[in-house]
Design a protein around this nucleic acid. Structure first.
Lengths: 246, 246
DNA sequence: CAGTGGTCTAGACCACTGC
DNA sequence: CAGTGGTCTAGACCACTGC
């Protein structure tokens, strides 16, 4: 049993062929023409029908398996993952959800300094001796409600930051504009309870639950660009992720 | 500038050639012969020197980029990520850390029942009408200290569970023995504060921070095999992960 | 302009699965 | 045994980067 996919391939498009296949299958899953659990055609048949080589088809399948839309089994076939799991997938991060829901996130700059790197930051960012850092704390709110308290350190030899730009733009937006292409981030997620100061800023009770996140991000030249320590109101934020067996 | 890697390829081994390359590069990074930030040879040169095709080399590189050991940039090259980031990588989950540290995790079965699936579980597991579930709660400790309180639901048409086997074996161990090959898991991580009952079982104070995790796992035939809701003592557990730009 | 990774082809043979 | 995904080859041409 298999379903013949109808995917249009445009060989004059700048979008790689394998990615057109990814988009086609994603679209078919989204609009229901490829239902949960459906078996796809085998790779060779699909390649012939779309007039593509099998490696190109496999590259597309690899991406879809990696993103959790398909599961594959040798000797058996490839099928669409159940909609219950996919529904989770689409939630991604609450931050994105909030933006899509029209609850525009806003950011308040609470402190800002340009200083020699403290030792733990020097270590986390693998800083050369002569590089200092920007250190600042921000409060992020959504729909007028405080959501996250964020403390960050950014090396100062990649981007020039000041209070004005941080008030007007997101950190990652500023870094991307400065030519930074992020490749990797290392995250640790845990929990804590709000102390008085945190509760005050986040407009909640001392003793309420907070999600903690420490992150260090690496760019495409291998530099550790920024590291941060964030706390989120647990009643408003959680981390959603898909783990794929490798 | 590039470093000539010495990797032995054994064409008679059952280990795929690309994976031998992955292991070789992982090994060279681990033992320091490929230092942080080092540029690798370009793919074509490496392919020729190892007498492999370029697609095979690229498959290996893709895996290493995906696991966060290498970063690549078109037109520039491929290099080893900084050791500060890699050190995090190796921490993986505290659970593994504890096992490696010799603090053998132990599990106590707190409750066990075999019941028709509650509606939310039926939904999460996409259960057919005639399938019931096992529902049980367990306490996991490490080095004698309570660490996690775990509540799980498992569909009953894949594996036969009873109290005896759950006392003696891990859930995933039992499922693997029953022929289940996990492919995907969907997780949500958040925070809460311990209520009296949780604090009691976890040997901590009411009001202390807990990390929460909900997970649903999918096997290679697309079935949602199990779903669970866990809480961890925040002073003993956190989730570590590497995010890779796609 | 030289060097690098990104995409693509048209095959081949193998290992595993389920009947 | 038929059907499927997993691995591998030996190229080709392109797009981007940094000098």
């Amino acid at each position: 049993m298999s379903t013949p996919l109808s995917i249009k391939i445009d060989r004059s498009s700048p979008i790689p062929l394998y990615h057109q296949v990814v988009q086609g299958i994603e679209g078919a899953i989204r609009d229901g023409s490829l239902a949960s659990g459906t078996r796809l055609e085998n790779e060779i048949e699909l390649a012939q029908r779309l007039r593509l080589s099998r490696p190109t088809i496999r590259k597309a399948m690899d991406d879809l398996v990696q993103s959790g839309l398909l599961v594959r089994k040798r000797g058996v076939g490839t099928q669409v993952v159940s909609s219950q799991i996919r529904r989770h997938l689409e939630l991604s991060s609450l931050n994105d959800d909030l933006e899509r829901a029209g609850k525009k996130p806003t950011t308040t700059l609470l402190s800002f300094e340009h200083i020699p790197a403290p030792e733990h930051v020097q270590d986390l960012l693998s800083l050369p001796k002569d590089v200092s850092v920007y250190h600042f704390t921000r409060l992020r709110s959504a729909g007028g409600n405080p959501l996250a308290l964020m403390e960050n350190w950014v090396r100062d030899d990649i981007v020039e930051l000041d209070e004005k730009s941080l008030r007007a733009h997101g950190l990652y937006e500023l870094l991307r504009e400065a030519g930074v292409n992020f490749r990797l981030a290392q995250q640790r997620i845990g929990a804590t309870v709000a102390d008085g100061a945190q509760a005050d800023v986040l407009d909640t009770e001392a003793g309420s639950a907070l999600v903690t996140m420490q992150r260090t991000a690496v760019d495409d030249t291998g530099r550790n660009v920024e590291t941060g320590s964030h706390v989120y109101r647990a009643d408003a934020y959680s981390f959603e992720m898909t783990l794929v067996q490798r």
